[in-house]
Design a protein around this nucleic acid. Structure first.
Length: 126
DNA sequence: CTTCTGACA
DNA sequence: TGTCAGTA
């Protein structure tokens, strides 16, 4: 199928589809016309990409994960052993990021609290 | 009518 | 990402 049909069948814009290819996530064949030619498995591959993307993974990481996923399966079925380690590392990074954000939020909470106090009688300015 | 590449008010 | 251009 050509890019237009894949776009309709996945709900993903042709722009994004070409972008995925640039990032090495999709490798469609090329027709003599120069048009991209996608196999039926591309539909599930795109779904996998969207899922991984929504999990917060970057295109570089996804590019490494995709070849470890059976083309048709609806759910991600880790076939490569090192894949799990990589995902665990991602999880660690995300956890660290959450902690940094929580710390930033605590600081903002403190700032907001003192600011609110300053707006009412008896409040202490910083 | 559809796709392609490159570019950006 | 959308979108416009100028083609094939």
């Amino acid at each position: 199928m050509r890019i237009g049909e894949l776009a309709r069948r996945t709900g993903v814009s042709t722009r994004a589809l070409r972008y995925y290819e640039e990032q090495g996530l999709l490798r469609p064949e090329r027709r003599s016309s120069g048009y991209r030619d996608y196999g039926d498995t591309a539909v599930s591959t795109v779904r996998h990409i969207r899922l991984l993307l929504s999990a917060g993974l970057g295109t570089a990481v996804i590019a490494e994960i995709l070849p470890c996923v059976p083309d048709d399966t609806t759910v991600l079925a880790p076939t490569c052993p090192e894949l799990l380690d990589g995902l665990a590392e991602e999880r660690t990074r995300i956890t660290a990021a959450i902690e940094r954000l929580a710390a930033a939020r605590d600081i903002l909470d403190a700032l907001i609290a003192t600011g609110t106090a300053g707006q009412r009688p008896g409040g202490q300015e910083m």
